[in-house]
Simulated assay, not measured.
Amino acid sequence: MKERINDLNEKFQEATVGEVLSWFLNEFKGKIALSSSLGAEDQVLTEMVTGIDKEATVFTLDTGRLFPETYDLIHRTNTRYGIKIKVFFPEASRVEEMVGEKGINLFYESIENRKLCCHIRKIEPLKRAFKGLDVWICGLRRDQSVTRHDMKLVEWDEANGLIKLNPLIEWTEKDVWDYINENKIPYNPLHDKGYPSIGCQPCTRAIMKGEDVRAGRWWWENPDTKECGLHKR
Rank of each mutant, 00 (worst) to 15 (best):
H119Q: 13
I120Q: 05
I120N: 04
R121I: 06
K122V: 08
K122L: 11
I123Y: 01
E124A: 10
P125Y: 10
L126T: 02
L126A: 09
R128K: 15
F130P: 04
F130I: 05
K131L: 13
G132F: 07
G132E: 09
G132W: 06
L133K: 06
D134G: 02
D134T: 10
W136D: 08
I137F: 02
C138N: 15
G139P: 05
R142W: 02
R142H: 07
D143C: 05
Q144L: 08
S145D: 11
S145P: 10
V146F: 00
V146T: 13
T147P: 01
R148C: 01
R148T: 02
H149I: 14
H149P: 00
H149R: 15
D150A: 14
M151G: 00
K152I: 02
L153Q: 04
E155R: 01
E155A: 06
E155P: 09
E155Q: 13
E155H: 05
W156F: 15
W156K: 04
W156T: 04
W156A: 07
D157T: 06
D157I: 11
D157A: 07
E158G: 03
E158N: 07
L162I: 13
I163A: 00
L165S: 03
L165R: 01
L165V: 04
P167Y: 03
P167T: 10
I169Q: 03
E170H: 07
E170T: 12
W171F: 12
T172F: 08
E173Q: 13
E173P: 01
E173W: 08
K174E: 15
D175N: 15
D175S: 13
V176M: 07
W177T: 05
D178H: 08
N181V: 00
N181Y: 12
N181K: 14
E182D: 14
N183I: 10
K184E: 14
K184R: 14
K184T: 10
K184Y: 09
I185S: 06
I185Y: 07
I185E: 12
N188F: 04
P189D: 12
L190W: 08
D192I: 01
P196R: 03
P196V: 06
P196A: 08
S197I: 10
G199T: 09
C200E: 15
Q201I: 12
